[in-house]
């Protein structure tokens, strides 16, 4: 490779893996997982081929919105250490290519989901792509410190789409799955922002610690965790939950609240003294927290599938 091609991307020079990287494969993994759980937890059976094809469409749609996000955010990606190696700032893919990949895959994924599943799930996928690419990336991310709060909705839609693929409708269960991810996103990202503050400052992204300060961020992490806990436990009392969900969710949320309280109790001096140990630990646990909640939905779905459910279990919603 010539030196020039290292700094300036030429159309047609990228490897296939660079285009895959545009789709944010790590985010796609989470989308596949939560959409699949939404689909499996739904009370209506779906043919495995249609289920697989639908989940693929949801994953590609999410990836397409990631490509549009990278196209729009190429300037700030170039100054943040976390994102500087992405295909566009690294000079492996041009912005126009990323835009084309994003648009083509968006249209294709929505159209195919419409054909494979139903109009509702395709409409939700289209709205999710629009929400992430336009509402979050183009508008909120650079405009308000509450960007993560509202932008988190984009990541919360996949289980709802999975549920809609199976049932063709929306009930309390997918709404609570949505609420779980939506309310989890702010404390998760603000914990990251506390120890990656410099990155966002350099990029002029108005993250809460940059605009309102770390004290306000610590307060907000605790407040959102307090709102999250009941929303995360409530699914136990729906048709998708049960006693296993309740027991483990109680433990997970107690641990989450304990971590949020530990962050709230500290100040910057204490955090810098131990290298943000508590914040990093909370951030790491928050990933396991969300993963385990969706594993619990899966466990309950399997138990229900084998008829292993308490008939007297209170289903409130």
């Amino acid at each position: 490779m010539s030196d020039a091609s290292l700094t300036t991307a030429q159309s047609g020079d990228a490897e296939f893996g660079d285009y895959v990287a545009l789709l944010k494969p790590r985010v796609m993994r989470l989308v596949v997982f939560t959409a699949a759980i939404g689909l499996i937890a739904a009370p209506v059976g779906v043919h495995p081929v249609i289920a697989l094809a639908s989940i693929l469409c949801i994953a590609v749609g999410a990836g397409a919105s990631g490509a549009l996000n990278m196209w729009w955010d190429a300037d700030i990606d170039a100054v943040m250490s976390r994102t500087v190696k992405r295909p566009i700032p690294a000079g492996r893919v041009t912005g126009d290519e990323a835009l084309a990949v994003g648009i083509v895959l968006s249209v294709l994924s929505v159209m195919l989901l419409f054909l494979f599943a139903n109009p509702l799930s395709a409409g939700l996928l289209a709205f999710t792509i629009f929400f992430y690419a336009v509402i979050y990336s183009m508008w909120l991310k650079r405009a308000t410190p509450q960007n993560i709060v509202i932008g988190g909705a984009a990541g919360a839609f996949p289980p709802m789409i999975g549920w809609a693929v199976a049932t063709g409708g929306i009930t309390w269960e997918p709404v609570l799955m949505f609420a779980l991810i939506f309310l989890w996103t702010p404390p998760h990202f603000w914990a990251l922002a506390l120890f990656r503050n410099d990155d966002y400052q350099n990029a002029n992204v108005p993250m809460l610690p940059v605009i309102a300060g770390t004290r306000a961020t610590r307060n907000q992490i605790l407040i959102y965790s307090l709102i999250l806990a009941p929303a995360a436990i409530l699914p136990a009392f729906t048709a998708a939950g049960g006693p296993v969900y309740l027991c483990v969710a109680l433990w997970l949320n107690a641990k989450f609240l304990f971590g949020a309280h530990a962050i709230w109790r500290r100040d910057d001096a204490a955090a810098e003294a131990d290298g943000f140990r508590v914040e990093k630990k909370f951030f790491g646990f928050s990933i396991a927290y969300l993963f385990l909640h969706f594993v619990l939905f899966l466990v309950e779905a399997v138990l229900h599938g084998f008829g292993l459910q308490l008939q007297s279990w209170p289903v409130l919603l």
Binding site: G12, D13, A14, E15, F16, Y19, H47, V49, I50, A53, L56, L112, L115, F116
Partner: peptide, 28 residues
């Protein structure tokens, strides 16, 4: 070499999409 690899990967993806549409059609 890079372009050939990319084209082959693209071919595999398009083939996968065709197979997927065919499989869903048969199921439906």
């Amino acid at each position: 070499t890079r372009r050939k690899g990319r084209n082959l990967a693209m071919l595999a993806c398009l083939g996968g999409v065709v197979l997927m549409i065919f499989a869903v059609t048969i199921v439906k």
